[in-house]
Amino acid sequence: MNKSIAASAWSGMIAMMFMFGAIISWQIFPPPSPSLPMAEWAAHFTENRTGVFVGSVLMCIGSSLFFPFFGGFYGCLKVAEGKHTPLTYGMMMIVPFGFLPLFLVMICFVTAAYRPEMSTEMTAALADAGMFLLVIPGFIGLAQWVVTGIIILRDVNPQPIFPRWLGYANIWVGILAAPGSFIPFFKTGPFAWNGVFAFWVPVFTFGMLLTAVLWAMLRAAKHPAMQQDQS
């Protein structure tokens, strides 16, 4: 077994747990409605300051742990793609672009809660920015998962590194991530930031996909082509 790949997969599972902990700690699961009065929305952060700060620490740990996970995932995808790996390089650039907003979400929420004497308007605006950063990168998710799906489906190995259904599942989740990019248009309904299509469907399918990827990486760690550099 390729222990580096297996360790990367498990770091993804731990990362998911920390990130889920952060969202719970920020009290945005389920997300409050964007149509809340501004004072109520600002109070959500000023009255839960400790939760916001704890959540930020959890997010800091969780989002960092995602990078070893993706490192292992790239390792598998590179072997799947073959000698020349332009799509894997593309994926390597898209992922940091999609994950950087998570760091900024944390900064926005912490800043919103840091000085309770700050004006309601300022607090609410920072909190809005945090929610936008969290949900808007939908199209980045689309690019990331569709590219991943194509790499998996074009596997050059006689015995593929990942099962082909995982490639199709990636494309499916990618398509479903896209509506998140439209949240600025809405304050109510299924496409608002707390709506079924902008939040619940992408979050649920993303969670399912990450779990499937984790399982597939543990399986790929035993693949003969992943053992070649092991001493």
């Binding site: 995982l166 499916w172 399918t205």
Partner: peptide, 20 residues
Amino acid sequence: EGIWVLIFGDMVVFAIFFVT
């Protein structure tokens, strides 16, 4: 077989669209 993950997955989500 794999493509049916995408086909059925999409049909389920569109069914949620339509009901909503």
